[in-house]
Design a protein around this nucleic acid. Structure first.
Lengths: 212, 212
DNA sequence: ATTTTCACCGATAGTACTATCGGTGAAATT
DNA sequence: AATTTCACCGATAGTACTATCGGTGAAAAT
């Protein structure tokens, strides 16, 4: 086992990370109403007052959580792109495009839940994080669809593509959460559904696009 | 103008409805964190302590809000079905199936926002209402899809239909909210997208179904 | 006309949480 | 070795909210 010859700043950083971890867990398990400095500090093993050594106030903690969430999100998206590019066939690449987000959500659903909750809560300090994340997901899916063979070169088509991306994104989230709730045991079936939905949309896009 | 020759019970009922209205507005504008007996009572024009004449406690108010929301929801769905049945052509009926929910959400988005928020908040007393509503929407969309020419007669197909319904439902919500946020000015374009998505799904269902 | 009911009021006890303060000891610096 | 820094502590002031209580006047019942 590792001993603990930590410098003071290392120890402080560790405590800070413990606080963030604890906050994310409490947020997921009890919601924003349950997130108090008392609980977070206790869960991280320090006194409530010591919370303020690491964060100026509760708002500051939530800001840090937003940063942390955004960071994890960007990492996950980079990784998703990398994997999809490595797929052997085009069909597999297409399926990967949908499977990877589904798996990512299933592995760590707490960030999505946090985002969905904060997004519709006008009082949440995490609202900006939620809106940013939503936009990032939307753009990600739009880029995926574009990679599947459709490029928008005018205002109308760009908006259509964005709408389809937003719809597919929402469907992806819904199916992933349904999977977690046990309603859809097979993730592969969810991939089938998403492929089918997107096929319809892409067909429509091509049919209203003159060339190509 | 109307004078006020109200009996005592009429006056009490009026106050109760004022409280519920005020609570829904505050919930939509400030989220659950902002919903306090002080604000609700003040907005309804009575003293904070008088709140308890109408509700046993705050929980009781939220239960009433859930009931109210469920009631409005059922009314809206009945109305939606009625309208879709009256559509002249099949294509129009198909489009109505998607347009009507979009319009309903656009007119009164607060109930959807309330539902989406509560659904992912484990601490929310409205969680049951949210889960019930979500199921109702899912079933509603599944019935719509079935009406568009597909019937499921085994476990696998039923689950597929439900997954498609859930996906379409999520996409509908996302597009309606995007419309309200000003990103998709034309609701008719959202209808186009939903029709396209559903076409893909229905085509897939038919292709994997032997008969019909 | 008299009595009862009850929707509403102001005051307030109780509870939960936020944020600040001075103190402490061990690590870091000198 | 002496001094400084600082992460952490316990105590507590301040704040916001919930829920209860006894009192009041007008409507309803008698």
């Amino acid at each position: 086992m590792t001993n603990t010859p930590l410098t003071r700043s290392e120890a402080k950083d560790l405590t800070r990370r413990r606080l963030i971890r604890a906050a994310l867990r409490i947020l997921d398990e009890e919601g924003e109403a349950g997130l108090t400095t008392v609980k977070v500090a206790k869960a991280a093993g320090i006194a409530q007052s010591s919370f303020y050594v690491h964060f100026r106030d509760k708002q500051d903690l939530l800001r840090a959580l937003g940063d942390e969430g955004g960071e994890r999100l960007r990492r996950a998206m980079r990784e998703a792109r990398r994997q999809a590019r490595e797929a052997p066939t085009e069909l597999e690449s297409h399926r990967d495009t949908f499977r990877i987000p589904l798996e990512a959500i299933s592995r760590h659903p707490e960030l999505l839940r946090l985002q969905l909750r904060a997004r519709h809560d006008p009082s949440s300090p995490l609202r900006d994080f939620a809106l940013e994340s939503a936009k990032a997901y939307r753009d990600h899916h739009a880029a995926d669809l574009a990679a599947l063979g459709y490029t928008a070169d005018n205002e109308r088509d760009r908006r259509r593509l964005e709408m389809i991306a937003e719809g597919i994104n929402a469907a992806t989230n819904a199916l992933a959460l349904g999977h977690l709730e046990g309603r859809y045991p097979e993730l592969e079936e969810a991939v089938d559904v998403l492929v089918a939905l997107s096929r319809g949309a892409l067909r429509w896009l091509r049919s209203t696009q003159p060339g190509s």
